[in-house]
Computed example of a mutant assay.
Amino acid sequence: MRQAIVTLKKGEGRLLKSGGAWIFDNEIDSIMGEFENGDIVIVHDFDGYGMGRGFINMNSKIRIRMMTRKQDQEIDHAFLEMRVRDAWEYRKKTVDTSSCRVIFGEADFLPGLVIDKFSDVLVVESLALGIDRMKEEIVDILKAVLSEDGITIRGVYERSDAKVRQNEGMERVKGFIGEEFDTKVEIVENGVRYMVDVKDGQKTGFFLDQKYNRLAIQRLCKDAEVLDCFTHTGSFALNAGIAGAKHVTGVDASELGIEQARENARLNGLEDRVEFVCADVFDLLPKLEEEGKQYDVVILDPPAFTKSRKTIKNATKGYREINMRGMKLVKPGGYLATCSCSHFMDYELFTKTIHQAAQNVHKRVRQVEYRTQAPDHPILWSAEESYYLKFYVFQIVDEK
């Protein structure tokens, strides 16, 4: 049996020692023994102290992703079952599990793996070579664990088509794991019905991380005129509609997203009050401002403007501009909900950028609340990449 021991350089492994799961290529002093990419290796500190076990990939700058801090822990079926059970038990205590993220990578100590549950369908995203070898076994374990709670999974679809797989020397793949099935799935969240397209929708088909943020805007939207920017498949717009908004306009640049949003509006009987427009938000908002449009609630839920540190400067400009435009369209005394889903746009920078936007357009803002991602996307304090969603609600104050 192949077994390799990886020894860190003296003074390296700071992320690992603070509770993180990654060891980078430049932190390794030596590798003794035989291994293939994707194998589990034993990790030692420079002085031989055992740091645990993880899987190695020489193609990736993240050279090792840790699976356990225990050096004598076998990464076997029993270990994977323990991880899956822990993840599911946590969800049962913290979220509505009818549709939720069941496995969230490093934050659930299964690095590189995401599994979302949409009603009776699972969607799998595998982003690292070592976990890719284990994904089907983990899926089988999860189906067995769910069945103990009377949940039958009718199908599993893989959406491992993200570009980052190429950093691991892996091809981008999507398709069925097991039997084929109808990939359009109806779910209910916060009382709103959606058709989720797990095959062709963005990411795994639907953004579950905003579940309770969508619920939080409901109370602001009763009898309101609402503008929902970057609506995707209409989730914030439909929460506003079901809460009793007078009228909602949802905007997105994707024709497919807008068609799905209209279908979702019909599904909820809201097509008379919730309309959707296919347009570039950056182009549309100045036009609405020129027309003198004003809304009681404006919602900004843009895609990540940056996925690396290199482009953070341009991303900051984008967030500042969109928030300036959004604030101008809010009636005095109305509300702005604004968020960023980019991990690299951290809390401090996002907060500073909104503050600058308010100053630039001479708006006084009063913070209603600050929120992050739903608890089924847990934030592991030692894994900063797990904290990515920032969500603010402000009132645009009209001093009388």
Rank of each mutant, 00 (worst) to 15 (best):
R193K: 14
K199A: 14
N190C: 06
D182N: 15
V198K: 04
N190V: 07
G201F: 02
K199G: 00
N190K: 03
T204W: 02
G178W: 09
V198P: 11
G205K: 00
F176K: 10
K184T: 11
E179S: 14
E179H: 13
F206I: 01
M195I: 15
V196H: 11
V196S: 11
D197H: 04
F206K: 04
R193F: 09
I187M: 10
G201D: 06
T204P: 01
V188Y: 00
F206A: 02
D200L: 00
I177V: 15
T204Q: 04
G191K: 09
K199M: 14
V198T: 12
M195F: 14
I187V: 14
F207A: 10
Q202S: 04
M195V: 15
E189T: 06
G191R: 10
M195P: 00
K199F: 00
D200V: 00
F176P: 07
D200G: 04
K203R: 03
V188C: 12
F181V: 10
F207T: 07
V196Q: 08
V185W: 04
N190I: 02
Q202R: 12
G178C: 11
V185N: 02
K199R: 15
Y194N: 06
G178N: 11
G201Q: 07
I177S: 10
V192H: 08
E179K: 15
D209S: 09
F176L: 09
D197Y: 05
N190T: 09
V196I: 12
G191E: 11
D200H: 14
V192N: 03
L208I: 08
T204V: 05
E179Q: 14
F176A: 05
D200E: 14
V185Y: 03
K184Y: 13
Y194R: 02
R193W: 02
D182F: 06
E186N: 14
I187Y: 05
F207S: 07
